[in-house]
Design a protein around this nucleic acid. Sequence first.
DNA 1: TTCACTAATTGATATTTACAAATAGATGAT
DNA 2: ATCATCTATTTGTAAATATCAATTAGTGAA
Lengths: 129, 129
Amino acid sequence: MPRGWGRRQMMGDCPQPRRISRFLEPALLLLLHDKPAHAYALVDNLDKLGMEAYPADISAIYRILYDLEAQGMITSAHDAESSAGPPRRVYTLTEAGEVYLNAWVQELRQTDQMLHRFLQVYDAHVNSA
Amino acid sequence: MPRGWGRRQMMGDCPQPRRISRFLEPALLLLLHDKPAHAYALVDNLDKLGMEAYPADISAIYRILYDLEAQGMITSAHDAESSAGPPRRVYTLTEAGEVYLNAWVQELRQTDQMLHRFLQVYDAHVNSA
DNA sequence: TTCACTAATTGATATTTACAAATAGATGAT
DNA sequence: ATCATCTATTTGTAAATATCAATTAGTGAA
């Protein structure tokens, strides 16, 4: 056993697979590609993307939205119809955002292939055993 | 534009999709599921998993291996046949490691479905436009 | 006003990545 | 033997992300 200092996965004690990450940003972009929405609607719609199993952190969502807006990928404005709280902010995808989403899609197609390969290899190992 | 502080993606200036992450650990486990190997062999074999596009950071690999060993998922020993450098360490998957890999596979099957759903929705949007 | 509720924001810390550099063993040349 | 050089491993550090907890704000009702 080498002496290098471990630095990962100290969370909890029994190691568990951690969900693949960095998927929230493209998911939000995709939802906004459909139509403008405010944060809480986005949370709800993530489920429809098949992310029920991965309840998203609301603060993470707001931070991603903030950054996307700072980068010109989305714009925001106060909702016309008001709700039972502070005015909701409605986010809209920009042209730049569409381009960015498209780049994400290409990236994710590669990821998808990678995953397929992985699962294929695993199944092959198991079946031959 | 809200005033919350952005905290992401300050790397470079023009935002780029960043590859989905946390995939290295299961990939290494899968390779070791095939047969014991040392770090550099693992680097080479990652390509065969369809990860050519994602050259892995060698230090990341060593750290993951360190942690996996600390958690009993793999064991290591010095290679019998020595090479043109310090003795290579050969890693072997343990039973616990197999179980862990299996948990990863289940996790990744879900991820795969999520990705499919995502791409499906995107394609539907685009095709209907 | 105070409470409950929804929406948005902030804080703090843990985890993970990404890049750079240092250490260490082996071999061969000078 | 010392040095340069190659391979293999290890360490350092800062940036980026994730996670959890708490706080601030607006609205309407009791």
